[in-house]
Design a protein around this nucleic acid. Sequence first.
DNA 1: GCCAACGTTGGC
DNA 2: GCCAACGTTGGC
Length: 155
Amino acid sequence: MAKRYWLFKSEPSEFSFEDLARAREQTTFWDGVRNYQARNLLRDEIQVGDGVLYYHSSTEPTAVIGTAEVVRAGYPDHTQFDPKSSHFDPGAKPEEPRWYMVDIRLVRSFAQPVPLATLKQTPGLAGMTLLQRGSRLSVQPVSAAEWEIVCRLGG
DNA sequence: GCCAACGTTGGC
DNA sequence: GCCAACGTTGGC
């Protein structure tokens, strides 16, 4: 299957791109997604080798700050079974997982982060899921054309 | 901190 | 299956 592209949102206070840079092998599991639409992407669509735009939300400025690649496809998010985790889901059973995650590895830190305001002003990005009214998906698809434009803006 | 937008829950 | 109430997201 052809390589596809995604945008992952993270609040830097939770797990920032710098945290990813410091992580072992600059790799992390993407836990904590608790939205069914995003879950379906993680479980069914996102494949090893796919590209990820790393987006910092709820910070100043919100921005795409770098790229990563998927190094492991969807598998059950273990935090759903952990009563001590803030992502614990009492309705999830190990034999019937409800939530999934993938592993990603850092690829490139942008020379210049691309803030939301820039994305909004850039021709060719008007169709980005991120920019749609009321869009809240924390894992969302990005087209190859959008990927190219954002990466160019990032330097 | 505000609040619009959206997703989920649960009574009926 | 409807929909009001509630909780969450996330830009501002």
